[in-house]
Design a protein around this nucleic acid. Structure first.
Lengths: 333, 333
DNA sequence: ATGAAAGCGCTAACAC
DNA sequence: GTGTTAGCGCTTTCAT
């Protein structure tokens, strides 16, 4: 187990200085073919590999970005991660992944990595309220960070969201057009942007068109909360005929309980879910949904981060349109 | 924009040597409270942050591991990634994610990062045949690598798989017990381990019990291939009454086509899928499946990697048992 | 065009 | 216990 060869060794073997070899390898120098060949063969015979840490230390950056998501196992964030990874790979950047499980310490940890220049930039996604404004402060203390999907309120960084208000409106319009009047909303935490906006778009549009919001249930973007919400809906609000659900995951939980309790979605209770990531067309019944352009969110988030890293200090807030995909979970009354 | 403080600066401010401060910060030294306090307050007033690249360069490792998967957007790999990330986080390790899209250059790139010590270890997952044995060679040229889920044949590294043979047998037994005799298999590439083993376990058990394998369709672990396979099945093998499907994704494609062509799964054609990641209980019909312990695969893969990195050069091959989860996609004849 | 040399910030032998 | 010192391997002024 001998020490691996360094740039020095290559330079020596090629009869050149390390500086020249370094420049050549980084493309900042064009050498006569003969010299280039000497270097290349030295590299080949020594089996030389550049050391990325030395490079990072010297240059002060790592050609790596970070992505924090609440949970990669959630299909929405999995697809977001795939999109980001794809673009990072194209740009020659590595991707560090942090699945925060919504624990603020994990999130802050990761932002700290950015401060230490462990990563050159950070794509940030969260799912819960920013307790004590700790996230806001941490995020604002950094340059190269962009927020996706869910807001961290008060921060001034580039952001990309889907148009939650529009999504809510589309859902309301669809229900009303099908003759529903007594509606409910089931979503994530009351005090986070996505949940609030989805509820607001829904209720404003519904009321405008003569509908009534019987109840708004705020909880978490989880299957478990979906289960709880469905129990409550069945027990406490039997008059509701249609529910707008803030996320696929929540809908899954609700569908389970509906099944267990013999309530037929579509026939007995109409639903529309927000996200439209899983295979909603194959469910029983196929679920009508507000489709989020998750790949676009990832791509644009990445582009915003690149712009930041290139020195653009503007703080655009981009809202991507959503569409309603009609399937069979809304019954006409 | 002044230069950030270094360990040197902290040491100076605390009236100590950098070595002492370094040792103190790394916990390899216990200082009298008074001295410790001097250091801590110096750190606080200077707002000092250690530089991870300098640390990595100096120590020759990065406290980061890599994970390569064919596609994080695929729920199976998403959950695998979540499991790995969880354990890496617990162990204080960062996680670099590579979604290879099954492109061998991406896979090799990532193995190369391991060689350069960019990451200290690598968890490797692939989905396609190892063309020209390039993967085998690259993997065998490294120490700290473990293979999960799908084999890279010929490599001598720790591995963790699910028990594909068992899965095939369970599926066959279930079909036969329900009275099915004319069976088919639809799976991934013909020449990769998971696909071969699932097919083999299925056909051996089926034949033993008096069943007949009408056809085996090998393709890819994708929805698109599922669609193609279902077309073929309907058109060319109408006598088949039950199909064992090598992956959730493939099943989704088949279910779409079944729906389009008016073939009712369960009633007209019984199916069992391998994986059981998505919400199979909510599909129409709920799909009976061979359940893969994906979180365990991730955890054990991680543990094997830790053992390797700690110097254990054994090469265990672990096969995790699978179970059949009965739902309603198999009809009794 | 090419080389010499000074870092980048930290860790770890080795010494006191 | 604490400090001195020599790297870790690369990049990049600054000379030549």
């Amino acid at each position: 187990m001998t020490k691996p060869p360094s740039l020095q060794d290559v330079a020596r073997a090629a009869g050149l200085s390390p500086a020249t070899v370094s420049r050549f390898l980084n493309g900042s120098l064009h050498l006569p073919p003969e010299t280039a060949e000497r270097i290349n063969s030295a590299i080949a015979t020594l089996n030389y590999r550049p050391n990325p840490h030395a490079r990072s230390l010297s240059r002060g950056r790592s050609d790596t970005i970070g992505l924090v998501v609440p949970d990669v196992a959630n299909p929405f964030f999995a697809r977001l991660a795939a999109a980001v990874e794809h673009h990072a790979g194209q740009a020659g950047l590595g991707l560090m992944l942090c699945s925060s499980v919504n624990r603020q310490t994990r999130e802050l940890d990761y932002i700290e990595r950015l401060r230490r220049n462990h990563v050159d930039g950070l794509l940030f996604t969260t799912n819960h309220q920013d307790e004590h404004q700790a996230l806001r402060r941490a995020i604002d203390a950094n340059r190269n960070i962009v927020v996706m999907d869910e807001d961290v309120e008060g921060t001034s960084v580039p952001k990309v969201f889907s148009d939650n208000l529009l999504g809510g409106r589309l859902a309301a319009r669809h229900f009303l057009a099908a003759g529903h009047r007594r509606l409910a909303y089931v979503g994530g935490p009351r005090n986070i942007m996505t949940s609030r906006e989805r509820a607001r778009g829904f209720s404003e549009e519904a009321v405008t068109r003569g509908g009534e919001i019987v109840t708004e249930l705020f909880g978490h973007y989880t299957m478990d909360y979906g289960r709880a919400a469905m129990e409550m809906l069945i027990d406490a609000y039997p008059e509701v005929t249609a529910v707008f659900i803030g996320a696929d995951q929540v809908m899954y939980g609700m569908a389970q309980v509906a099944k267990e309790r013999g309530k037929r979605l579509g026939a007995d209770l109409s639903i529309i879910a927000y996200d439209d990531v899983g295979p909603l067309s194959l469910l029983d019944p196929p679920v009508t949904a507000i489709h989020q352009p998750v790949e676009d969110i990832g791509r644009i988030g990445f582009e915003l981060l690149m712009a930041r890293m290139a020195g653009d200090m503007s703080t655009p807030v981009i809202r991507l349109p959503v569409t309603l995909v009609e399937r069979s979970s809304v019954r006409s009354l």
